[in-house]
Nucleic acid binder design. Sequence first.
RNA 1: GUGGGUGUAGCUCAGCAGGAUAGAGCAUCAGGUUGUGGCCCUGAGGGUCGUGGGUUCAAGUCCCAUCACCCACCCCA
Length: 437
Amino acid sequence: MVAVIKAPRGTRDLLPGEIEKWHYVEKIAREVSEIYGYEEIRTPLFEHTELFQRGIGDTTDVVQKEMYTFEDRGGRSVTLRPEGTAAVVRAYLENHLNSGPQPVKVYYMGPMFRYDRPQAGRMRQFHQLGIEAFGSSDAALDAEVISYTYDFFYRLGLRGLRVEVNSVGCPQCRSRFGEALKSFMEKYEESLCPNCRERLSRNPLRVLDCKEQKCRELLAGAPSIYDYLCRKCSEHFEQVKSYLNLTDVPFEVSGQLVRGLDYYTQTVFEVSPPGDGQGSLAGGGRYSNLVEICGGPATPGIGVAIGLERVLLALQSQGVEFPSVKKERVFIATAGDDPAGKLNREAMRLLLELRRCDLPAEKDLLRRSLKSQMKQAGRIGAGYAVILGMDELENGTVVVRDMLKGEQSEISRDGLTEYLKAMVQIREEIFWKAAEN
RNA sequence: GUGGGUGUAGCUCAGCAGGAUAGAGCAUCAGGUUGUGGCCCUGAGGGUCGUGGGUUCAAGUCCCAUCACCCACCCCA
């Protein structure tokens, strides 16, 4: 036997039993998006490599070591999207959404790809829900995006989340602050962790969220970003906080919060699950230059990306129950010998008839014994079994067995559909009422 | 890219200081006399013990390498 091929590292299959949870999360995502006025956009799963290099930033880890980049047969360098924002910006420009009514508010949901080493809540193919809003730099929009994120989590049933908000200012504020931070930290260079020494020259702001104890202690005396925000950025941040206070989002201001993607300006935020687990559930912020970087006119934008695998993990660890809406199913079984295939043909007719009437129905597909068929009916959770034998065929009847009660009765073949429809409806009402309590 | 852990049937695991045809529970399939599920009983199928080397009279059991998975770091969702 040849070896079975396994799914590539960092990818996995979502099987029946688990996929229903995804459907539920996706349903809530669409509902919240609609309520907040975001419409769906779908962009390709791969783009020209250059889009991500320019959009995300050449110096970021994502671009430097995590991209799935390859040449297609035409010699073009393409990359499996590692995140959603750059592609949405591209689509916004390419489809001239910038010359339509503003703001433009869209959401996306789908797989992203990063060549990382897999671990809990991190896959090479993972899924994000995200929103992007273009054309407005109003602080109310910042609050809206954060509120959307929180609302999505809240509706799913997640509680106790930590929402951190910060402002990294515009490029001017940032570079002034970076210099200040750098000259401060350089005084203690020998006490810094090797990583931070590296960061000081490359991207000084990143030392702010170092987890090393020593670095953290030093940071206590470090300059604050808030002393370096220009008047405009400072005012914007004040407004964001004040709008946010009008919502029920329990946020905290965190001057240490820095995000790893280069395009963020001003507002940045992150949502993490309770406890000291590092992985955040969502991260986002404002990007005032990204549209320009991608070749468009200066256009403000803001967005968030939510990691759905992590959301599922958080739901699981908080013990959130998923609603299961199961439709009643009917199983058609044939009884006794059927050498001429008469029963089987009649079962096929019944099957079609029930399905035409929107009754989910199954029949035996393995030519098994009645006993096995009943077993199968029970296994798939059929509410009713229809049993058809030679006697019934001759009498123009059929036996309907209530699989929950274990009772059965013979009814006329012609009235089967109406009978089952009525029975199923009654039972669904009972389920519905039970679910209400 | 770095570090740590794990790797025996589909699943969860046993396998005692290395020694006889590698086991259990669950799952699957078939039966428990004529056309009936969920309980019970019986039986069957299913494993090159991740892979490749090595040590040994003998390795699932020891050593090395490799791969995969898990966890953590980096970074991020």
